[in-house]
Design a binder for these strands. Structure first.
Length: 361
DNA sequence: TATTCGTGGGG
DNA sequence: TCCCCAAGAAT
């Protein structure tokens, strides 16, 4: 028997012990985060909790930090954000991904101002009705910002709980069981701290690849640790292969400006400023038809970009546009000197860097 | 219920 | 290099 195994196996840990041990660990080891109040310091600003929860959806803490600071400095509360220009908010979100979140962020702020006097509702059921707030986020806000008991289940909790109870059903089928198990260990008091403690545990100790069970505060309650196979949880169904697409992006330059347009408000990179393209999507390649008749020059460099559900290789075609002539269709001439402020999604930022570094235009 | 939404870091 | 994944929601 390994030296770290207790001489007497603890059995039949009750659910209260798990929360108690986890909260005690959290009181000492809670991560310091810009949107978080440390245990004992009261509840964080609901605006901060909401904003961070939206930004953190499928996004790492490291990636969110700078965006959270920019947003709170530029728009410090719901009223300020609700009054913002859409274009400014979309540009500020550029690079963070999942851009529907930014549009729903604005929608939600405006509803909070118009329907709730600028104060976020505190009940999970009311939060759930707001744009961009789903089951996880509603529970997280109710618990973290308002101290209500709510069952908070994110990917960290799914991993921790599936290991604790050795739930071997693959996701997403296991979600109901995991939620019920999480409910069974969620305390009536400090549900917000409990949720954040679970997420800290999942982000640090109970990690995906090699969990650090030796320092885990709830090791003795963990069925997967007892069985010696925590890394097999949570089970997941195999993923479908990622298609490889090709397409074009077009660079139209006129007197120190480049032609930008606003993408459609639904679908990929919705509502974002962008360079013209030839119609590529996750499902189809581009048709290689330029947005206007011109003397196009193909650059020798390509740009590769990986989205969640497909990989894309783009060819780049450039042309110079006659001085003082209108641009093709609907769009705007954007000064090259301030292209960093255009709020281009990463793909188009990569393309523009490739063009400006190529020197072939 | 299954798909469609970005991006960057880690192993 | 490639595959994994992340404080999920909308449709």
């Amino acid at each position: 028997m390994p030296f770290y195994m207790p001489a007497v196996q603890q059995t039949d840990q009750n659910s209260g012990d798990i929360a108690e041990r986890l909260l005690a660990h959290y009181d000492v080891h809670a991560r310091t985060l810009p949107w978080r109040k440390l245990p004992g310091q009261g509840f964080a600003d609901p605006y901060h909790v909401w904003l961070s929860e939206i930004m953190l959806q499928q996004t790492t803490v490291a990636a969110v930090g700078a965006y959270f600071r920019t947003f709170t400095q530029t728009w410090p509360n719901f009223s300020a954000l609700a009054a913002a220009d859409d274009a400014d908010v979309m540009a500020a979100w550029a690079g963070l991904g999942y851009y529907a979140r930014a549009r729903n962020l604005l929608k939600c702020a405006r509803v909070v101002v118009s329907e709730y006097q600028g104060q976020l509702p505190s009940y999970e059921a009311d939060l759930l009705k707001l744009p961009g707030i789903g089951p996880y986020t509603a529970a997280a806000i109710a618990a973290i910002a308002f101290g209500r008991r709510a069952v908070v289940v994110d990917a960290n909790v799914e991993r921790v709980v599936s290991r604790l109870f050795a739930i071997s059903t693959p996701l997403p089928q296991a979600k109901p069981d995991i939620r019920a198990a999480t409910d069974s260990i969620t305390p009536d008091l400090r549900a917000g701290d409990f949720a954040q403690a679970m997420m800290d545990l999942g982000a640090g100790i109970c990690s995906v690849r090699s969990p650090s069970c030796l320092i885990c505060p709830i090791q003795s309650a963990c069925a997967a640790f007892r069985a010696g196979n925590p890394e097999i949880y949570p089970a997941k169904l195999p993923k479908s292969p990622k298609p490889q697409r090709v397409g074009h992006v077009y660079w139209i330059e006129r007197d120190g400006h480049v032609w930008l347009l606003r993408r459609d408000d639904r679908g990929l990179l919705a509502s974002m400023r962008a360079l013209p393209d030839d119609g590529w999507t996750a499902r189809i390649d581009g048709d290689a038809i330029p947005p206007a008749a011109a003397n196009w020059q193909n650059l020798s460099v390509q740009v590769a970009h990986i989205f969640t559900h497909f990989s894309l290789t783009v060819n780049i075609a450039v042309t110079s546009w006659p001085a003082d002539a209108d641009g093709p269709g609907e769009g705007e001439w954007w000064p090259l000197k301030s292209l960093d402020n255009a709020g281009l999604p990463t793909l188009f930022r990569k393309v523009s860097e490739a063009v400006l570094n190529a020197g072939e235009r």
